[in-house]
Write a protein that binds this DNA or RNA. Structure first.
Lengths: 216, 216
DNA sequence: ATTATCTATAGATCTATAGATAATGC
DNA sequence: ATTATCTATAGATCTATAGATAATGC
């Protein structure tokens, strides 16, 4: 048969792309282990043999999905990750937190998927490990300079910078990890979730601001 | 054969208990879906038919493990969950956070396992849903009274109490969810992790304190 | 007679591939 | 000839049960 998928009667888009889209959807929803190649093929509307024809293995199609998603994330976040010497310190930090939070908020299943892989299949992240470690090192050093100057000048509470970053990252990330819990508690109206995310971002910024500038 | 497991050559403890222990170990490590009955039986050193003989289904053995763990948690945490009218407000709150954090810290795989189930098999928590919701409601109302009085008296920053609790819970919980990430970054020395947890608890307390009492 | 255990196996999945077959591009 | 597709199937697991067999408690 080998229908051309541009023919009438077939879904739009070529098969390879449809499989990629279906795979992304399922990996984002279920993580690596629980998203099966059979379900991906079903969702794409093809036999599962097609998945192996185009992508060879489950691991390879996952790595393509992961690559796309991590590149999107890195592209969005990189510009604000290096703190410069000039400029208002709090505005710089706030800008970084905002971009990070906003990206996770516009890709709400990214953090849960990455968490799933980090927990259950960390070896799949091997090729990104180094790059991400390097990036986080750049973030750290550039901010350390800025923050230490602020602390030394007595304008900011003295704080362990590693702990500060840990607080910022976990507060942002866990907001999205806990969406399943929220779904069970709040109304199902999607706008409720949007409002919650806005309030959450404000609260995180206020919390970090007072951690750094609030006088005890 | 039906060896009595008190005979020489057999592992100590009765079979049922050995299966329970193995199941707890695997569920804590891998969550519900990825812990298989075959692996549980292997670890317990019995054939997997035994698992069904004693517990009938995978779901039932999991529910027993869950019950034990949730009861332990609730027993530890309940005493400090109701804020009283008298007493220092910050000390009360600090006490609650400390007990909560310390319990998770002495049961480091509990939060990850619960998160896994909440994400992938929320229906397994159905029978606990109501009780937990009720408890969290009691926590909330008792604290709302205390905190509002403090805010109205101008002794505490005005704050959305829902957001405050969300910050406290996610900061504590995510500390333990992210242990796999830490393992990849820090040294493998278990004492490093102990020290990190201590520092983390202090940082969370400082952060929440300044959120509530720090002057902008 | 009851309890505990083992072997064997059913029936669902999963990932992956082999091999046949049809459409497309020369 | 190459590319795309389908059918069929191998080989691993998984959960769960049936049925035989041995040990224990009367």
């Amino acid at each position: 048969m080998a229908k051309r998928n541009t023919e009438p009667g077939t879904v739009q888009g070529n098969t390879e792309q449809r499989i990629m889209d279906a795979a992304e959807e399922l990996f984002l929803d279920r993580g690596y282990m629980l998203a099966t190649t059979v379900k991906i093929a079903e969702r794409a509307g093809v036999t599962h043999a097609m998945l192996h024809y185009y992508f060879r293995t489950k691991e390879q199609i996952f790595l393509k999905v992961l690559d796309k998603n991590l590149n999107g994330f890195i592209g969005a976040v990189r510009p604000v990750m290096t703190a410069t010497a000039n400029g208002n310190v709090w505005e710089t930090l706030k800008g970084g937190i905002t971009v990070f939070f906003d990206y996770l908020n516009s890709h709400r299943r990214l953090a849960p998927m990455l968490y799933d892989v980090l927990r259950n299949n960390p070896e799949l992240l091997r090729s990104y490990r180094e790059g991400l470690a390097e990036m986080s090192e750049r973030v750290r050093t550039s901010h350390v300079t800025m923050l230490l100057k602020e602390m030394d000048g007595g304008r900011m509470n003295r704080t362990d910078i590693g702990q500060l970053f840990y607080s910022i990252l976990t507060m942002c990330i866990s907001t999205f990890l806990t969406i399943p819990v929220l779904d069970g508690m709040q109304g199902k109206d999607p706008e409720d979730l949007d409002r919650f995310m806005d309030a959450r971002k404000t609260e995180i910024l206020d919390t970090i601001y007072l951690r750094l500038y609030g006088k005890a």
